[in-house]
Design a protein around this nucleic acid. Sequence first.
DNA 1: TACAACAATGGTAGCGCTAACATGTTAGCG
DNA 2: CGCTAACATGTTAGCGCTACCATTGTTGTA
Lengths: 343, 343
Amino acid sequence: MSKHTPQPRHRKRTAQPTLAQVAEMAGVSSITASRALNAPDRVNDATRQRVLDTMDRLGYVPNLVAGSLASSRSRFIAVIVPSLANTVFIEVINGLQSTFESAGYQILLGNTNYDIEREQQLVRTFLGWSCSALVTAGLRHTDACRKLLKDCDRPVMEVMELGNALDLNVGLDHAAAGRTMARHLLDRGFQRPVYVGARLDDDYRAQMRYSGHVEVLKEANITPRVLELDQLGSLEEGMKGLERVRNEYPDADAIHFANDDLATGALLHALRIGMRVPDDMAIAGFNGLPLGQYITPRLTTIRSPRDSIGRLAAKELLNRLEGKRVTRRQHDVGFVLVAGEST
Amino acid sequence: MSKHTPQPRHRKRTAQPTLAQVAEMAGVSSITASRALNAPDRVNDATRQRVLDTMDRLGYVPNLVAGSLASSRSRFIAVIVPSLANTVFIEVINGLQSTFESAGYQILLGNTNYDIEREQQLVRTFLGWSCSALVTAGLRHTDACRKLLKDCDRPVMEVMELGNALDLNVGLDHAAAGRTMARHLLDRGFQRPVYVGARLDDDYRAQMRYSGHVEVLKEANITPRVLELDQLGSLEEGMKGLERVRNEYPDADAIHFANDDLATGALLHALRIGMRVPDDMAIAGFNGLPLGQYITPRLTTIRSPRDSIGRLAAKELLNRLEGKRVTRRQHDVGFVLVAGEST
DNA sequence: TACAACAATGGTAGCGCTAACATGTTAGCG
DNA sequence: CGCTAACATGTTAGCGCTACCATTGTTGTA
């Protein structure tokens, strides 16, 4: 016979019990078993209890992949950050996590390593998982990524900095933070500050703070100077930063660091080698990590409410996911100058 | 008519193009389009290119949920940690992430808040997502959770401490670490040490280190003393710990802290209030965070290769997932006593 | 020239669940 | 007692993809 004979074929199946098996054993249809889990009020109490008992007895574990395909909803929240080595993003993730996990959502975590091509790839993958919403750090994306995010018909939250966002936006004004710190240094009488950051092309928020710094210095007719390091945020690198400033800008009287990790490394190093802070060199950071406040002299820094970024972003997204009308698409979480004795 | 008329019903569909649409437009069957993505060698080069171009043109995003259901494989790695506030777990996550993401796996992140009931729930959820493997911190689970993990027929990796593991195990011997530090304190001549931890019932690894500490003290006929704080790891809490030891154990000459965060908080506080370290009070920690090595005096601590836990765990899991035979189920990553000037 | 071996592609039947609709059953009311 | 509304449950048809097998054409070998 040339035409195929449709003999019964079976593909491998997991040993896991299915809803249908549970339903049969409980003497109901599978849709009722489904409802016992997902819409308990639509099932009679006794029936529901019988179904749940059966599930327990069989060790039933719902296949969420199948459920997600059928309903085209997934209860995934995609979270894309540029780095896991930076406390700031961890705190944002933590804020998102605590809110979403208690609302029954799972976090899908992606790390771009400050590479927007990688971000685009992650967005595609996460959309492929029918995530309910996406959270991504920053407003810079590839064109293709922006298109994906615009067309995906899901809430998109961009966090960290404020600006012309695709959808929802929670963050702070980094240029303003840079201006605030530069002004503080000038107010304290430091006339020859150097801005020290690392990989400013990648860490463009640090670059935005630098541009604020530049603005203020230019207004005061002071030539801005900048030094770029290799490592984004480490105590070790901050130490090197201090040494390089002493060599390359011997007249510098203050260092405006891109973050507290660098600043703390420099501060601790300065203390160890007997430099007087701030008399020989003032040191300032950004982030408001607790650490800086436990060192003598305390580190001057700018505190941003990092965990509230996560928490607020999660709250706004949940509102949107639950169909509530979102009135404000943009939230400025602000920042506070914390003046220690290091400046 | 009493019997139903099967009129065509349609459920809502996403506007996203499907593989079938791509295939039709490219003039191939959908299975060929599928292969163009997932098994490129099984498709003629020209055909594949045509399919890929069509995908590009239509903005096709593969529906990974459907693919996962059909193949019952998901390329998810479930990672369950007790806290995101602790650097140690972040570093483990980072190690796992960097290895798995480059191998094309996604991380599904769960946070138990040191609650093993919550862990059980997370394991169920992640199994429901057909994750390819699970990584969880620690060897303590509920009975039901242990059963789920045993029966799930997937690689299971327990990290952090060593012991009687379910499947794969990467970690270190915490009791031995506690013994090492206690011995170090005695060797340096401190006779009245106090162990200070927080929520030892939850953070049972800190408790294991304490039990090592106790062993050594008993051998030396010294009565072990312990103080329990509320917050797991913060500089603030370490400061309080120091104050409480001074009040409650005025004769104490050394504090063995459960972690570096607490120890650093105490050390910085001691310096600020003019205590001499180690003459008035010796201070030791655990973890080997960089911070402690930048303070004068440097913090005595035990360094564990935290990121290698993640990296090694990921490597072993990948071997297993790729079908290679795994020879060693257990890896001791060890630890090193880093003696600073704080003891 | 015959035949095996392989490469390229396709048809079909699910994967396990839920949306959409249909039906049966009970309570409430005048 | 008949009618309606609310409740409880069931039937069917996919969701979009890939496993499984089948088919065709193409090359190498004796």
